[in-house]
Design a protein around this nucleic acid. Structure first.
Ligand SMILES: [Mn+2]
Ligand SMILES: [Mn+2]
Ligand SMILES: [Zn+2]
Ligand SMILES: [Zn+2]
Lengths: 141, 141
DNA sequence: AAGCAGTTTAGAATAGTTCTAATAATAGAT
DNA sequence: ATCTATTATTAGAACTATTCTAAACTGCTT
């Protein structure tokens, strides 16, 4: 049997992260989570993650990539961002923050929420509860 | 020959609006523009507009609806909004403003830009020019 | 009226995503 | 370790919003 801790720091951490979220740490989920959470925050599309998995010799189907992304999102490990309606991004940064969107490249870059000061938020009609506030700054680049 | 001014106020106005934008006022574009701009600001999807056209006995193809929406957007008569990656909305309000998004119904509601005070905007990396700032407040309703 | 560029159209094509239903793996109990 | 129920994975089909194609048509200028 293989050692469960394949990478210095992230191996066990990722496994625990999945367990804590109530997600079975399957081989596929572990591999994908490792790609997603190995280093700093990222914004990835399903296709991107699928390709990175293939590059890392992780044998996983596209359907599983979608399943995992949605499962992770459902458990709060990721956050889904729709910007250009052609595809979604999944953000490993689930904290309160905003984005620069580079229209040419399709690249997303985080803006810490402290750097954007929103005031005078109107109350949601009918006292509806606010789920999330997204600020997207589109830049021509 | 029919009277060009079919509706009390909007007939000629819509025609001029298209001409001023450099768009040929074809039968289809006129009919669609009339639906879009007849009354106050709206947020419509392509499919919605297509259906409204059919209801108004305007014979227009779906491809033309898409063409018109994009042409209008390109000329600044509409603004395209992507929220949920399943489809885009086209907004007849092209001025600076933001949105409430009602997740349950998919409805969009304008927020005047004066009601949202954004301060401390970080400079775009590399001095890139800001195209637009979108604030979307998602509410659970 | 003629000619041309711009527009419309039906239907095919595309692409991201979801679904299906069969197979496989996991967790927990024995 | 084995058994079992539950959950996950998968290939490929299906779905859906949107775009493309290329042929027919129309608005505009002369
Ligand atoms: Mn999704
Ligand atoms: Mn579009
Ligand atoms: Zn982010
Ligand atoms: Zn609006």
């Amino acid at each position: 049997m293989r050692n469960k801790k394949t990478s210095p720091l992230s191996g066990v951490t990722v496994l625990e992260r999945l367990r804590d979220a109530g997600l079975r740490p399957t081989r596929q989920r572990l591999a994908l989570a490792k790609i997603l959470f190995a280093r700093g925050h990222r914004h990835v599309s399903a296709e991107q993650l699928f390709n990175e998995a293939k590059s890392s010799r992780v044998d996983v189907s596209l359907a599983t990539v979608y399943n995992a992304l949605h499962d992770f999102t459902g458990k709060g490990l990721l956050r889904e961002i729709s910007i250009d309606s052609s595809s979604s991004y999944f953000d490993t940064n689930t904290g309160n923050h905003h984005h620069f969107y580079f229209e040419r490249s399709g690249h997303l870059e985080d803006i810490p929420s402290e750097h954007v000061n929103i005031s005078a938020l109107p109350e949601a009609p009918g006292g509806a509860e606010i789920t999330r506030v997204d600020v997207i700054i589109r830049v021509k680049a």
